[in-house]
Write a protein that binds this DNA or RNA. Sequence first.
DNA 1: GGAATATAATTACTTAGGTAAATAATAGTT
DNA 2: AACTATTATTTACCTAAGTAATTATATTCC
Lengths: 133, 133
Amino acid sequence: MKSLLFHEIHQKSRLSIKEVNDALKEFELYSSQWSILFCLKQFGAMTQKEIWQYLNVEAPTVTRTIARLEESGWVFREEGHDKRARIVHLTPFAEQNSPEIEKRIQHVEEEMVSSLSEEEQDQLLSLLKKIGQ
Amino acid sequence: MKSLLFHEIHQKSRLSIKEVNDALKEFELYSSQWSILFCLKQFGAMTQKEIWQYLNVEAPTVTRTIARLEESGWVFREEGHDKRARIVHLTPFAEQNSPEIEKRIQHVEEEMVSSLSEEEQDQLLSLLKKIGQ
DNA sequence: GGAATATAATTACTTAGGTAAATAATAGTT
DNA sequence: AACTATTATTTACCTAAGTAATTATATTCC
């Protein structure tokens, strides 16, 4: 029964988002917001297009989430050389706080997979990657 | 990097929902609606509580989705012996059409995991089940 | 029997994600 | 140079799912 597989993926996706949201509560952030901050932390300032391509979501999703991050002071947007594009930067506040948040999230994620060995984690990742290719 | 694992789960969850929605388009259904029809098809009439417990979502999610299914003629609700509970039934229309839909969805899901062997599919499922326990 | 508690469903509000269409700026073509 | 096509982002509108609070019925306990 293949449905079980996708049912399980769906469940675990929701579960992990829930746990991450819970851990982010004290920073007044949500998981999707963190995914963008994480992205910027890793690669530096990016255009919105680069962000949604990396995260593999649609452009409007990123527009919305960045708007919220901007309102709450985590990012700011600069007009690019190409005036259509907007380059997103972390604010100093975000630069300062993101290491602690990252540590917290990493801990949550490690807890969630603690019942799997390192080898099983690798295996799981590589099996997931094979889906839909 | 554990984040990669959850990132991947999240991606594949979204991908599969997208594919299922696409296949359901001709029936004017959405994936979450189908998950409830599937449930009723498998277990027969159920209370909403039984549905959200099985699907592992919150009660309001099921309330909303069932309301839409009722509007579009896929289910109807009967008052239970306990007047708080509402028992959800498939309509004759749903009974008649669900086998074809199920076949279609099954096909989509099989396509998505066609790059994995049967053994790998089992392995993936059992690894996923171990997360967060 | 009646007050307090628990339970099933709902309502209101939030984030997350998608599609389709609109806007504005850029790139290409003739 | 001007028209066309493409591209980056946004807007509007939809489903999905969560939390918190409300409503209505059942249950429990004194």
